[in-house]
Design a protein around this nucleic acid. Structure first.
Length: 802
DNA sequence: AACTGTGGCATTTTGT
DNA sequence: ACAAAATGCCACAGTT
């Protein structure tokens, strides 16, 4: 029979595969998974260790295998025991380790479900033909016993997904608290029909029920009726599912959706960061996935559903204020809130559909469930992938570091990328060249891997590079005779991606195949680009700080080499960062020097033209003559502007500061000096005469730790305390908003949170001085515009306002 | 990891 | 002699 696997769970050593057959019937396939660990004895103690394990008074099977441990081959003992007897084996191994007789005990921390996948080459989100034996029913699922996996089958599976979103109207007045405030609305959307359940008021467009208990009951029924594979929410781990879970406890209601008939299960109990799982159904929290994997590519500063939907789907923002909620409660009329909820479930569903293929491809590649992928960070993705591939290389999977070891690793650091110091000024005709995927290329080109580092071959030692870590400077080399685990894998990913990209060019952009292939190449790109970071990541199993340090060291030599080549040819290089160089051309024709440079560079490194710019501006660091790094603006031929590092792209500056800086930068790049002077005169006037809305003056900062942990009375900390006083729940990650108002003393003593500000209350002087003139100071300096020119007749623009 | 920049705070320097 | 201004350092947020 053929099955599409959704997830693989276990009860002790009993594997439960949650799958669907060709008719979408729920199927649970059972299998008994042996538990085993690998013990690596030190050569001379091999027989002793083997004997001691064999003498243990437990059921066991000990076999001798040849396995690789970080590239080196060993005779190892594969010890298969019952999971219940693990402690006995562990204490023996701990003792042997202390006596120095074994290198270690490995793969004990690989979950039993993972072991099942590795041993049988069976992973979620794929179809398999299996030989099974029907055993009867388990709930409403067919129960089978797995006899044998015949083969993987390539065919599509159409995922049935629903999105959910809840409303707690008490939140219109205070933070919703599940011990007190009921759920008023639960919305569900399956891509076709909306089920907006509500109670306690009138309303159009929803399904009215008698009370909250009935609401949960109806929700349960609908989910069972739709029988989805995926339930999607936006911030649903920390809000929607958490809330539904808590309310069901308060009301003593037991859900029966989920294949085990238990509904929502709390799988990680860390306060403030709980994780909810549903057996057989993949719970996908898009907010978590977007924050972990996609945030870097998005322009949105705050990853609210509205912002993200606007950027990704181009759906406009709907203004819903707290007033809407308050009115709904006061008038007992929910129509507006119902349509708001309807829109939210729809957007959530559409966003999910937009990312579904990427989630699927990432899951397939890494061997994880959709649920696991949606919670993964880059490190988890890379590691899952390496684990999945390890068997092909006969590599034993290294242990995850213990807390102490991880802390130790965190203390170590190494020299990173090279950043050139730019000379402040306004430049014309700038070409930006960069290396395409520099770090992955270096790993491949130099065979950088934990298993190739410091090999014993004298030949390999000849090509060394010096790395500098917190332990000091040391020369380092990588094996040239045998390809390492990580470079081999990277190479394969790289080649696979090239192949897909080639294929994409032939496909119709609107075809299903294009969509799948494009998601696949993007998933591969994510893995390719995350591997360097993974090597230096403290909790990695294949951690290798010296490898990471070698990657950056090679990176620095390459970028230096390019700069030297360009300078030798008489070009002026004005800036460079990690993998890019900014060079002044005499004309656009000069771009052809790229070919000459690429002829000299070793393969597969390749310098490319990132773009050509008409003009660009670099400024000084505040209070210094040195040019500021990672801070510049470029004007391209199509009129678009690229801003890096400037206050205009930062979240912790007011809108007025950002708008003014961006406008001034544009005028500067266009060479319009008089425009700047006129614009500034006008804007200063507007600020003073309070023509602008308060929104322009709100400063936002995030709390990066718990409020109590702050040592200083910084403005955002003071503001956060004000929020707290007003009954807001202040958590880590809370975005604090404040406005600087008139008054005396420190800034922190005269801030107000927006809801305290009446009558467009803000301090014009503060904003003109600190938010408008400060950020453009460097730009004006480059252009040689003095403050007197802005306010003619006055020596100093600041004294004008005093 | 590298880098920029703000505000708070304690101390030193400077102006009157 | 005193206060204001400058300075240096730290904590912190954020971008690349």
């Amino acid at each position: 029979m053929e099955f599409f696997i959704l997830s693989i769970e276990h009860e002790k050593q009993k594997i439960l595969i949650f799958a669907r057959d060709e008719n979408r019937n729920k199927c649970i396939i059972e299998y008994f998974q042996p538990f085993y660990v690998y013990v690596i004895p030190k050569g001379e103690y091999f027989e002793e260790v083997k004997r001691k394990i064999e003498e243990l008074n437990i059921n066991k099977e000990v076999s001798v295998e040849r396995k690789k441990w970080i590239g080196r081959e060993y005779r190892v003992l594969k010890v298969t025991i019952s999971l219940d007897d693990y402690e006995t084996l562990k204490s023996l191994c701990d003792r042997l380790k202390e006596e120095g007789k074994i290198i270690g005990k490995k793969e004990a921390d690989i979950t039993i479900t993972k072991k099942f996948s590795l041993d049988n080459n069976v992973y979620p989100m794929r179809w398999y033909e299996m030989e099974v034996e029907f055993k009867g029913k388990m709930g409403n699922a067919n129960l089978y016993k797995l006899k044998r996996v015949i083969r993987e089958v390539e065919k599509p599976y159409e995922i049935k997904a629903i999105s959910i979103d809840i409303e707690i109207l008490a939140g219109g007045r205070k933070m919703p608290d599940p011990s007190r405030d009921p759920i008023d609305i639960i919305g569900i959307f399956d891509g076709k029909d909306y089920y907006i359940l509500y109670w306690g008021a009138e309303g159009n467009g929803g399904i009215k029920v008698r009370n909250e208990y009935e609401l949960l009951k109806k929700f349960d029924e609908i989910v069972k009726k739709i029988d989805p594979d995926v339930i999607v929410g936006y911030n649903s781990h920390n809000f929607d599912l958490n809330y539904i879970y808590e309310r069901s406890k308060v009301l003593n209601f037991n859900f029966s959706f989920g294949w085990d008939g238990k509904g929502i299960v709390l799988s990680k109990k860390k306060e403030e960061d709980r994780r909810f799982k549903i057996f057989g159904i993949q719970h996908v929290d898009l907010f978590v996935f977007i924050s972990n994997i996609l945030a870097g590519q998005l322009k949105s500063e705050v990853l609210s559903l509205d912002n993200v939907a606007k950027e990704i789907l181009g759906i406009g923002k709907e203004e819903v204020t707290l007033e809407t909620f308050r009115d709904a409660v006061d008038l007992k009329e929910y129509s507006k809130v119902i349509s708001y909820n309807k829109r939210d479930v729809e957007i959530t569903y559409m966003l999910y559909k937009h990312f579904e293929q990427l989630l699927i491809e990432l899951s397939k590649i890494t061997g994880q469930t959709l649920y696991e992928t949606s919670l993964s960070t880059y490190g988890v993705l890379v590691e899952s992938y390496l684990i999945k591939r390890s068997r092909e290389f006969n590599e034993i999977i290294p242990n995850r570091p213990k807390e102490e070891e991880a802390r130790e690793r965190l203390r170590k650091s190494y020299i990173g990328a090279l950043v050139l110091e730019p000379e402040p000024g306004l430049y014309k005709n700038i070409a930006v060249f960069d290396f395409r995927s520099l770090y992955p290329s270096i790993i491949m080109a130099y065979n950088i891997s934990p298993d190739t580092i410091r090999c014993e071959h004298e030949d390999c030692k000849k090509e060394q590079i010096t790395i500098e870590t917190s332990d000091g400077k040391v020369p380092i080399w990588f094996c040239k005779k045998e390809k390492g685990f990580i470079p081999t894998i990277l190479n394969q990913i790289f080649e696979e991606r090239v192949k897909i990209k080639k294929k994409l060019k032939e496909l119709d952009k609107n075809s299903e195949e294009y969509r799948i292939m494009d998601a696949r190449q993007y998933a591969l790109k994510i893995l390719l680009n995350s591997t360097y970071g993974y090597l230096g990541f403290a909790v990695s199993r294949w951690y290798c700080l010296d490898c990471a340090a070698a990657v950056t060291a090679y990176g620095r030599t390459f970028i230096k080499k390019v700069i030297d080549l360009l300078r030798d040819k008489g070009y002026k290089v004005i800036y460079g960062d990690t993998d890019s160089v900014f060079v002044l051309l005499r004309s656009k024709e000069d771009i052809k020097i790229l070919d000459e440079i690429n002829n000299i560079l070793p393969k597969p490194l390749e310098l490319e033209l990132e773009n050509f710019y008409i003009s660009g501006i670099f400024v000084e660091r505040r209070g210094e003559v040195k040019g500021a790094k990672k801070k510049y603006a470029l004007l391209s031929e199509d009129g678009s502007i690229k801003l890096r590092g400037f206050e205009a792209v930062r979240r912790d500056w007011s809108e007025i500061a950002k708008v003014v800086q961006e406008n001034v930068l544009r005028l500067a790049l266009e060479g319009n000096r008089t425009g700047i002077i006129e614009y500034l005169r006008k804007i200063i006037n507007d600020i003073r005469s309070k023509k602008l809305s308060l929104n322009m003056f709100i400063i936002r900062e995030q709390l990066r730790k718990k409020l109590e942990k702050y040592e200083v009375e910084a403005p955002h900390v003071v503001a956060a305390k004000k929020y707290k006083q007003r009954g807001y729940k202040i958590t880590e990650g809370f975005i604090v908003e404040y406005v600087v108002c008139k008054g005396s003393g420190k800034v922190s003593e005269r801030i107000k949170i927006p809801e305290e500000c009446t009558n467009n209350e803000y301090d014009p002087e503060y904003y003109i001085e600190k938010q408008v003139l400060q950020p453009i100071d460097g730009i004006l300096k480059v252009l040689g515009i003095t403050k007197e020119q802005i306010i003619s007749g006055h020596k100093d623009i600041l004294s004008f306002f005093k």
